[in-house]
């Protein structure tokens, strides 16, 4: 849940990157880390297995600047993608303000995308969230690979909410900031806690 501090004039929001294993969630926030100036980012934390797979979460705090006098802080998290880390994924989703679903565009990964999305819906519902009420952006990642589904197919099979979506090649940074910018906008517009004049 976002935290608005009117005294300090700052907002803190949590954005979670969700999706199937090896889909590019960590690559997304690694690119953000790499391209963000020193003073705007905190330390990136990776809780990994020995072979670089996310074990619990990755975490990157970002301070993007001010909007209408409020300092904006975004905490970016990824979940572990591998199927057997369901309990960890559920924990990372607690108090989420915005979601990026990073889908793997490869044809053979469609079922893994669907399964992961169904897991997301269930994990949110188990904690009392309605996915249709949370800012959500889809990213069709790995567009550089040869055997990919058409974006229209991915839209039809995965994006039943008509949420914004972006094609990406996170390894080269394509689409990474476009995705983050869109979900950040949706999160900021969804923030509650305004002052009554």
């Amino acid at each position: 849940m976002s935290f608005v501090n009117h005294n300090k004039k700052e907002v803190n929001c949590k954005i979670v990157y969700y999706g199937p294993g090896l889909g590019g969630k960590t690559t997304n926030i690694q690119h953000v880390y790499k391209k963000t100036a020193g003073e705007a980012k905190g330390n990136m934390i990776k809780l990994n297995t020995e072979n670089e797979r996310t074990l619990f979460f990755d975490f990157l705090p970002l301070e993007l600047g001010e909007i209408r006098g409020y300092k904006t802080r975004f905490h970016l998290y990824t979940v572990p993608g591998q199927v057997f880390y369901e309990a960890s994924r559920k924990l990372v989703l607690r108090a989420v303000d915005g979601l990026v679903f990073v889908a793997d565009s490869q044809l053979e990964k469609m079922e893994a995308n669907i399964e992961s999305l169904q897991g997301l819906e269930k994990n949110l519902a188990d904690q009392g969230y309605d996915i249709s009420k949370i800012p959500l952006v889809f990213q069709w990642n790995k567009r550089d690979l040869p055997n990919v589904s058409a974006p229209e197919d991915l839209e039809r099979r995965l994006n039943k909410w008509g949420a914004p979506s972006f094609c990406a090649n996170a390894v080269d940074g394509e689409g990474v900031f476009e995705t983050l910018k869109e979900v950040s906008k949706l999160v900021l517009m969804n923030l509650k806690g305004g002052l009554v004049e």
């Binding site: 608005v4 009117h6 300090k8 900021l188 517009m189 806690g193 305004g194």
Partner: peptide, 15 residues
């Protein structure tokens, strides 16, 4: 909580 705002009021209205 530092949040003296109204939970039914949007903070930024539109961005």
């Amino acid at each position: 909580s530092g949040n003296a705002g109204n939970e039914s009021v949007e903070l930024f209205n539109n961005v």
